[in-house]
Design a protein around this nucleic acid. Sequence first.
DNA 1: CGCAATGTGGAGCGTACTCTCTATTTCATG
DNA 2: CATGAAATAGAGAGTACGCTCCACATTGCG
Lengths: 193, 193
Amino acid sequence: MARPPRYDETQLLDTAVRIAADAGPAAVTMSAIARASGVPNGSIYHRFPQRLALLAELWLRTVEHFQTGYFAALQSDGDPLRAGAAAARHVVAWSRQNPREAAVLLHGPQSFGRDEWPEEYARRADDGNKRVLEAVAELAERGGATAELEVDRVMLAVIELPLAVVRRYLRAGRPLPPHAEELAERCAVDLLA
Amino acid sequence: MARPPRYDETQLLDTAVRIAADAGPAAVTMSAIARASGVPNGSIYHRFPQRLALLAELWLRTVEHFQTGYFAALQSDGDPLRAGAAAARHVVAWSRQNPREAAVLLHGPQSFGRDEWPEEYARRADDGNKRVLEAVAELAERGGATAELEVDRVMLAVIELPLAVVRRYLRAGRPLPPHAEELAERCAVDLLA
DNA sequence: CGCAATGTGGAGCGTACTCTCTATTTCATG
DNA sequence: CATGAAATAGAGAGTACGCTCCACATTGCG
């Protein structure tokens, strides 16, 4: 016995991602989302109690979307070298298929107000981070890397380095070249070997 | 026959760098600089005609400061492998000595309004970029790399990868660990070999 | 000392943004 | 059809920021 919702969070977050990718996180204002989506100002506050909650959801939705595929790639192969290669390749491939979400990822949580998020969101972000760190640490162990410097190198190979490849092109406003996956995978393998 | 200046650009830019490093580029407002430096609002506009000019100078001063040492490292050795290793190590060492400026570097020019800079500043930024690209391309050539994928790999090894090492720690708010230089150099060598 | 030249300092205008508040709309149900 | 729960819509209060303006201060020089 109630009026059905006319807008949903997804629609608003999609608009917010588009704005963030095109004009940076600072441009993701409630007014901008209202203008771009046609949803009135007040209706947005019906879905998100405050701007920081919207930014937090925007970040978490994006990073969690990324991580599902990333974990799958990391565990796709028993051989740690091949698993690492698959993970590195996945980062680039996913970014190619989701360039706007990739742009969000590259900005990092701080740009979306991470330090002022309500506890609940901060915890969700920490959990996700922890899962990634554990998965990569396990990969390093399977590969025989134990020293801190060795683990750092694995982390670099399967996360930071492929992201650096993506960043290099997206920051310049250019699309990813066809050989980007190849580049990231080969470099990752070289660092892991 | 005139009143001597009481404040100078350096003082204001130093404050701006501190704010940018601690709270992000968006926090670098004219009001924030005025509050943090004790220089009145109006006096800042005596040095910088508009906010974007200040942001542009902040970015350019930082990146040019970085590049002087970087070029020296790139040309420090005739052997391309050793030169690349020195460059990678320099990126980390410089970031360790200048953590706030390094934080600025990691944000990238877009975060400082690059797309809306007056022509003059945009050109200066382009020139600096071009010099770096040329220097790295020359290094790649000396190392026998000619294919586009090979040049990209060199670019990754001597710029993006060491920056990724720095980013990993600074983004988390932690200081660079003692072995960071070693990590960046070894990984760079592996990618160059 | 008076003058010209340059720098200062802070009040304040216009704008944009976050968030609130409330009248209004919509729909399942009795 | 009347009712009430849930959602909408948009005006507007409060705040911060970019930038302007101009009365005033500080110097070197004649």
